[in-house]
């Protein structure tokens, strides 16, 4: 589905990502863990094609096609989507209007136990944290994507709301064959979505890739992210390497 090969990225003269390799197959959930400012959100935006970044090496393929030089909307049309960590407010445009413009499939908001008034509010204007995340997920579902990056879906969400949202993700996305890259630094969402692969990113590099997310998370909670650097490519990486 998505293949990132030896990807290096700069912003201005600064190297942000170095030699990133990720391969996500159909219906797989991969988790990308790492401390603040390690480059996780940058990778999400580079995958989605944001123009602020300069790819200095490597390539990104999606459904077997090289998309390294495609625009954001071309990637979206191929079936890629991004759930924003901090979605911007768009004043004057109601959520219903945006859904009308972008939807490839109808979404019944009643299924999400959400006040339908949210559709008649301006996008993200005055939305609570939970409403923002739900608005993001409703938009993504309406796009009928085949691959979604969730950039810190869990940030600012209480455990009940997180469980509710992950249940929607399972029901509406995973059960429909969607692949997911999950960016997080919380264990709860891993427990709910049980990723097939977990990566640890430090200073713009993936230092660990494992098929055993529980062990990765245990290492992080017990010893911190820096420990992952120590076992770089040995203990945890040996569990699973993307082919």
């Amino acid at each position: 589905m998505l293949k990132v090969e030896n990807l290096s990225v700069k912003v201005g003269s600064k190297n942000i990502l170095r030699g990133i390799n990720i391969e996500i197959k159909k219906i797989e959930v991969h988790a990308l863990l790492g401390p603040n400012a390690s480059g996780k959100s940058t990778l999400a935006q580079v995958i989605m094609g944001f123009p602020d970044y300069k790819i200095t090496a490597g390539k990104i393929s999606f459904k077997g096609k090289d998309i390294t030089n495609l625009s954001i909307e071309e990637r979206a049309k191929l079936g890629m989507a991004l759930v924003f960590q901090h979605p911007p407010t768009i004043k004057g445009i109601k959520l219903s209007k945006l859904l009308e413009k972008i939807s490839k499939q109808k979404v019944d908001i009643k299924e999400f136990s959400l006040n339908p008034n949210i559709l008649e509010r301006e996008i993200n204007v005055g939305f609570s944290g939970g409403e923002k995340k739900l608005s993001e997920i409703i938009q993504i579902i309406s796009l009928d994507p085949s691959f979604v990056v969730f950039d810190e879906l869990d940030a600012g969400l209480d455990i009940e709301n997180l469980e509710r949202l992950t249940s929607i993700i399972k029901d509406k996305l995973l059960d429909n064959g969607v692949s997911i890259l999950l960016i997080t630094h919380r264990g709860d969402i891993l427990r709910f979505l049980k990723p097939d692969v977990a990566y640890v990113m430090l200073d713009g590099e993936i230092v660990c890739s494992s098929g055993n997310w529980k062990e990765v998370w245990r290492t992080i909670t017990r010893y911190g992210y820096e420990k992952c650097k120590e076992c770089e490519g040995r203990k945890l990486l040996s569990d699973r390497q993307p082919s």
Partner: peptide
């Protein structure tokens, strides 16, 4: 702009939508 383009709108469509919202429905 990037947000709306990530939803599949072209740059022109995204600008039109933002302008429409800015000027009031």
């Amino acid at each position: 702009l990037n947000y709306l383009r990530s939803r599949g709108l072209t740059e022109d469509e995204a600008i039109n939508l933002i302008v429409t919202g800015f000027l009031g429905e």
